[in-house]
Amino acid sequence: MAEVLARSSLVSPCGDQCSLSLPSVGRRNPSFVAIRRGSCRHVEALKSSSRSSHFHGRRLVVGATKGRPLRGFLPSISAQMTLCVGKSSKWWEKCLHPNIKVIDSAQDLVDTLQNAGDKLVIVDFFFPGCGGCRTIHPKICQFAEMNTSVLFLQINHEKHKSMCYSLNVHVLPFFRFYRGANGRLCSFSCTNATIKKFKDALAKHSTDRCNLGPAKGLEESELLALAANKDLSFSYTNKPVLVPSPFDIAERAAADLKLPVHLIPRVSQGSEKKTLVTAQG
């Protein structure tokens, strides 16, 4: 329905005149405001009060105050107003720095840990309704801001409950530290009152170091538990384990004992079972 704007002249008691554009008043549209003769001061007060109001969509009734109607206004004037308020961020979505990543799935967690290289990775398990998780969150964000070389991972226990159970996370807030080929370094639970535990672990494991080999990430048992979880779309195949031959084992033992070469055990080639024999001097 098109709105028709009407011009209403308002005359103040002092003789001043001002004009205000108002939508036409209809019986079937209670959201329009009908204002007849009144004071300019009352109009300006109404404008300023509407701008600073915090009613947030509740019904606003402009009328009698303590039994006395406003001067120059009708005894009962009602207005239906609505403010467009932006969606507020949740507490765990605030103060997120570039080195803080939100984990979306089990595969995302495994890939992120394996691609981290020698970088220290801290996994933060939290629950939206946990008071301890909420109070410690600003401190974790401060640590992330001060340690830009450290990667922080956030896992929402409420959203990924099944994955957290497979990782044996049952106490919140909970933290796990990973680094390179060493894999998991430590894991513990702490709150804002015991934040020193987190500071000490961060100071201990954040020193620069070079690890030989690819990043280990999760433990083998954790990967198998995630793969066995039917609620997760995660698959994992056991990596083949290289078993050293008997000769390699004997050679390493001889090297450790510093034995002469002629005393190193050899494997006979004539037997299918490759029986160990000792070389004759």
Rank of each mutant, 00 (worst) to 15 (best):
M1G: 05
A2M: 08
E3G: 10
S8W: 06
V11H: 00
S21T: 13
P23G: 13
G26D: 08
G26C: 13
S31L: 14
H42C: 01
S48E: 12
R51T: 10
S53Y: 00
H54N: 14
G57I: 08
V62A: 00
A64D: 02
T65Y: 11
K66N: 15
L70C: 00
P75S: 12
I77K: 09
S78P: 05
S89E: 14
H97T: 04
I103V: 13
A106R: 02
V110E: 10
D111M: 09
F127N: 10
P128A: 03
G129Q: 10
G132N: 10
A144S: 13
E145R: 06
H157L: 11
E158W: 03
C164Y: 01
L167F: 01
R176W: 03
N182A: 15
L185A: 04
C186R: 05
I195W: 06
C210M: 12
E222C: 04
L223F: 06
L226F: 08
F234T: 08
Y236Q: 06
V243K: 10
P244Q: 11
S245F: 11
P246C: 12
A253V: 08
A253M: 05
A255H: 10
L257R: 03
K258S: 14
P260N: 11
V261D: 15
L263N: 02
P265H: 03
T278K: 15
G281N: 11
